[in-house]
Simulated scan of single mutants.
Amino acid sequence: MSDHDLVPDLDLSQALAVATDLATWASEAIRGPRGDDGVREKASPADLVTQTDETIESHVRSVLRAVFPSHGIEGEEYGTDEPATPNAPYWVVDPVDGTTNYAHGIGWCSFSLGLAAPDGTPLLGLVTDPWRAETFTAIKGKGAHLNGHPIHAATHTTLTGHLFLTEWAAHSHWPGLDPLLTTLSARHCTARVMGSTALSLAQVAAGRATAAAIGEFHAVDGLPAYLIATEAGAVALPSVPAYDEPLLLSAPGVAAELADLWHRILTQ
């Protein structure tokens, strides 16, 4: 099935251009003066939101509604606006993915924006690192790019000696994470918890991390990076991520090794 069959009359090149402009604006907002930025708790002391999160998402929603009035929008801060017409695509946006880092002045967070077909199939993904001026992008079936240049998952054939990125579920380890880290450590695979789901997954696309995993897949911060990584040749386990379930991404040469480790952990 082609992208045109999924969403007739959708110009993904135009959508990517709009997304890229929004990413440039969001990056400037994230790097701008912060003051106290109105930092406050949401669901728990480990779940923070800032005025910057809300300002960026409000602006993104305003632009998307103006340019794509029939589309739906799902955002981290303001929930879901259903599509105005049946069978229209919808956008997913996380204005500051890695708000805890941002709120504490640590320069590792991202702006994440994606577009999905009505059935959830990812069509477009963008993840921007404001601090390093890096923008990862992908259109379904057209490969992945970093600042306009093609990128590919690593050619490694073993996890040993390479890098594995993961994220906690806010302040908590997710089920299966601890035994996975122990197993990877025994293989001399170095693990890092960086603090931004979208940006960590995107490192697999760039070939920097050989594998990455999250304990709970959410479209707003996971779908764009998932598309970018798989368009770069990374292998996803499962191949189609499910809401609130773990997602593992890896270079193709280590996919079987990682899948075997994960299967052993799940069957312990």
Rank of each mutant, 00 (worst) to 15 (best):
S2L: 13
S2F: 14
H4K: 00
V7N: 10
D9F: 11
L10G: 13
S13M: 01
A17C: 14
V18R: 02
R31P: 07
R34C: 07
D36K: 05
V39A: 12
P45H: 10
V49C: 13
V49P: 07
D53F: 06
H59S: 10
R61A: 01
S62E: 14
S62L: 06
V63S: 06
V63C: 09
V63G: 06
L64T: 03
A66Y: 03
F68N: 00
F68Q: 01
G72N: 05
I73F: 03
G75W: 00
E76F: 06
T80S: 07
T80H: 06
P83D: 04
A84G: 12
W91K: 01
V93N: 00
D94W: 00
D94C: 06
D97A: 05
T99N: 12
W108T: 10
C109G: 12
C109L: 08
S110V: 14
L115N: 02
P122K: 02
L124D: 01
G125T: 02
P130T: 09
P130F: 01
T137W: 07
K140W: 08
G141S: 11
K142F: 08
L146Y: 05
N147I: 09
H149R: 15
H149E: 12
I151R: 03
A153S: 12
A153Y: 05
A153V: 02
A154C: 07
T155V: 11
H156W: 09
H156M: 04
T157H: 11
H162D: 01
L163F: 13
A169I: 10
P175A: 14
L177K: 13
L180M: 15
H188K: 01
C189I: 04
T190V: 07
V193E: 15
M194T: 15
M194V: 12
G207M: 08
T210R: 05
T210H: 10
H218L: 05
A219C: 02
D221E: 11
A225N: 04
A229W: 02
A232P: 00
G233M: 11
A236F: 05
L237I: 07
V240I: 15
A242Q: 14
E245V: 09
P246E: 13
P246S: 11
G253I: 07
L258H: 10
W262H: 12
Q268R: 12
